[in-house]
């Protein structure tokens, strides 16, 4: 094969994507396995009888004890128990909540959607706001830039629950534009989404603007200007991609902020969702449910960071394997 046909071959493999992508996915699976194992170890090492721990605040009857022993295989060797546990997880069986007397999968399925909605709304608000502010102010020394910088600092410094309360006070109680609480379609998503999204917009906006400004001082920006392109084309066509690299790195932090923030924001706005479930599960010592939430969070993190790594490969060709 001549070198020409080699480099000409299209597709992911030729572009050097396949190796890094496969490695990322493998690492993601390993992290999930580690999270599952950690949750399992926490259960086994919790003080007291494992059966008591699993029951938590639920009703303690001989039948239930027998059920737990059967479901968790507590009469068998530890290694077999662990193997069974992993196998069950692989089949998507998250076990039973003995407090709520329902399947854990069923509970989560009914509560995850409102949280996902909230998180996506907040993420969209955050990213859009950050982009608009960064593009509008990057590289310009103006009063607007100073003002935006100051507001970014302010929203980053104020915790989401306080932002939520302030938003409620202004837009619900005073102006009456949005409902105070509950889950009634998109209108009831706006304020909680903002409460959660503003913090993201603040941090992301700062990182994006800094990245844009750095990129605009690079030699390639001079070259691009020397071709006669407009400042806007320079920002949109060149600098933005460079600014996205550090911003994308934040997505991990972002996921954490969304998950953690959701719990608090859901409480402030009285919304259903994983936040309420988590608080309830911890309060009633519902360990099977807590373990499942740990796994879901791990899954969210792994998914986010895998997407980040793939996004890196898409944005920066230097990270693809070159030949």
């Amino acid at each position: 094969m001549s070198p020409l046909t080699l480099t000409r071959r299209r597709g992911l493999a030729a572009a050097g994507w396949l190796g890094p992508a496969a490695r990322r996915l493998g690492a993601g699976v390993a992290v999930l396995w580690a999270a599952a194992t950690a949750a399992y170890l926490a259960l086994m090492l919790a003080p007291g009888d494992t059966i008591d721990v699993l029951i938590g605040d639920g009703l303690d009857t001989p039948e239930r004890r027998a059920q737990i022993i059967a479901e968790w295989g507590l009469d068998r060797s530890p290694l077999q128990q662990y193997g069974d546990y992993l196998l069950r997880l692989l089949q998507g069986d998250l076990g039973h909540s003995y407090v709520l007397q329902r399947g854990v999968g069923e509970i989560l399925a009914s509560q995850i959607w409102p949280t996902v909605q909230l998180a996506l709304t907040a993420a969209t608000f955050g990213v859009l706001l950050a982009l608009v502010l960064a593009l509008a102010t990057a590289g310009r020394r103006s009063w607007l830039g100073g003002l935006v910088g100051l507001s970014e600092l302010a929203v980053v410094s104020v915790p989401p629950f306080l932002v939520g309360i302030l938003l409620l006070a202004v837009f619900s109680f005073t102006l009456g534009w949005f409902p105070v609480s509950g889950d009634r379609g998109f209108v009831s998503l706006v304020l909680p989404g903002l409460a959660l999204g503003l913090q993201i917009a603040g941090v992301l906006g700062q990182v994006l603007r800094e990245g844009l400004e750095r990129a605009l001082e690079e030699p390639f920006a001079v070259t691009a200007r020397s071709r006669g392109i407009t400042e806007w084309r320079l920002v949109a066509g060149h600098a933005l991609r460079h600014a996205l690299l550090p911003a994308v790195t934040l997505t991990g932090w972002f996921t954490g902020a969304l998950l953690g923030g959701a719990i608090i924001v859901e409480a402030v706005f009285g919304r259903p969702g994983l936040g309420q479930v988590t608080v309830g599960a911890v309060n009633s010592k519902d360990l099977p449910l807590v373990m499942a939430i740990v796994l879901i969070s791990a899954l969210a993190y792994v998914t986010a960071s895998t997407i980040v790594d793939l996004a890196y490969l898409a944005i920066d060709p230097r990270l693809r394997r070159s030949r």
Partner: peptide, 10 residues
Amino acid sequence: DALTSLDPLR
């Protein structure tokens, strides 16, 4: 040095 004078991402 075209390594930095050409946009490395394009």
